[in-house]
């Protein structure tokens, strides 16, 4: 009996010590991208790493290898099981993450979205790259200003379940309905993550619509395919490619003229802001209407009604400035 008490006492003491040891470790902020290994998310990773050093947290970067929502959910589930204090996700399937958000809440963990939202999931905050509104409108306004208001335009998107891609398409469609009555938008085509499929779809769209004037690569993974298809079809000058493409991915197509411009934001800054937001959540500090983030120049607005923390206006990359960026 006595020995059992000793064992219990020792056990409690060990646990207490372990507890102290854990408490002394840095809090962890995880980011789960839609897929790993693409330049865009690598850049977010680099920004997140920088913020982690700046704000004294441990940064975990892990994600699926092929933009599969089920794999992504499993990875998030693992992080929740490990008790990672703050977990951010670039959501692939917005309808799938609500249960895991509830589970994280029950464990006292912070689960939030970044880069791609799941608005009805109960997430703590959404760290937005630029408002979807701003991205959609900037792209279609820039495109129409270059190819004219009397134009037929096609979309080549990635996965049909990506909520951010679908949101941009919807905003472009609404903008056209409201502002550009003579623009015809074709039904979006979905290439998944494969750039040869994107090239095939782009070339098929150009064949089916000889009067096509613009082609929008909605997912970054479809950018090389769209640019390449326009070059191969010999349609530079007839069809103008554009899309949400990183400067490195689109550089050669912007230089050849297959792509007139691309619209995006700086993913490194987005990764940085994501980790900062995670740290704020862990510390229990509320977001202000306008936040000063050490390391970012511009003030960061927060909309309490929608729970969105906004990085800023999108950037338009053209022949003139594409050389200044490396991501």
């Amino acid at each position: 009996m006595k020995s059992l008490k000793t064992v219990l006492a020792t056990g409690v003491a060990v646990l207490a010590l372990a507890g102290v040891a854990i408490a002394q470790e840095k809090p962890r902020v995880a980011f789960v991208p839609q897929l790993i290994g693409i330049p865009y998310f690598n850049s977010m990773e680099a920004g997140g790493q920088k913020a982690a050093e700046e704000f004294g947290v441990e940064f975990i970067y892990t994600g699926p290898v092929d933009a599969n929502p089920i794999d992504q959910l499993q990875i998030v589930q693992n992080l929740v099981n490990q008790g990672v204090e703050a977990i951010s996700i670039s959501t692939i399937d917005a309808s799938a993450i609500a249960p895991v958000v509830a589970e994280a809440k029950a464990k006292g963990l912070k689960l939030f979205t970044s880069d791609s939202d799941a608005p009805d999931s109960g997430r703590d905050v959404y760290v937005a790259q630029a408002s979807d509104q701003g991205l959609g409108e900037t792209l279609i306004d820039q495109l129409v200003s270059r190819i004219g208001e009397d134009a037929k335009i096609g979309f080549v998107s990635g996965d049909a379940t990506s909520s951010n891609l679908n949101a941009w398409i919807k905003i472009i469609q609404d903008r056209v309905a409201e502002k550009y009555p003579n623009v015809t938008l074709l039904e979006p085509q979905f290439a998944g993550g494969s750039s040869d499929r994107a090239a095939q779809l782009a070339s098929d769209l150009m064949t089916a619509n000889p009067d096509l004037k613009g082609l929008i690569a909605v997912a970054s993974s479809t950018c090389p395919g769209v640019g390449q298809a326009i070059e191969t079809a010999g349609k530079i000058g007839e069809v103008l490619g554009t899309g949400y493409c990183s400067p490195n991915t689109a550089r050669s197509y912007i230089e050849s003229g297959a792509m007139g411009f691309t619209v995006l934001w700086d993913p490194a800054a987005l990764g940085y802001l994501t980790v900062w937001a995670g740290k704020q959540l862990i510390d229990g500090k509320p977001f202000e209407a306008s936040n000063t983030v050490p390391g970012l120049d511009q003030p960061i607005p927060y909309d309490a009604a929608t729970g969105i923390l906004l990085l800023g206006d999108p950037t338009v990359f053209t022949k003139d400035n594409v050389g200044n960026f490396d991501f």
Binding site: L35, G37, I38, D66, A67, G192, G193, S194, S195, D196, A199, S221, P224, G225, Q228, T232
Partner: peptide, 10 residues
């Protein structure tokens, strides 16, 4: 020759 690029999901 056809696509002139190799992406992660090739």
């Amino acid at each position: 020759a056809n696509y002139r690029n190799v992406e992660m999901t090739v």
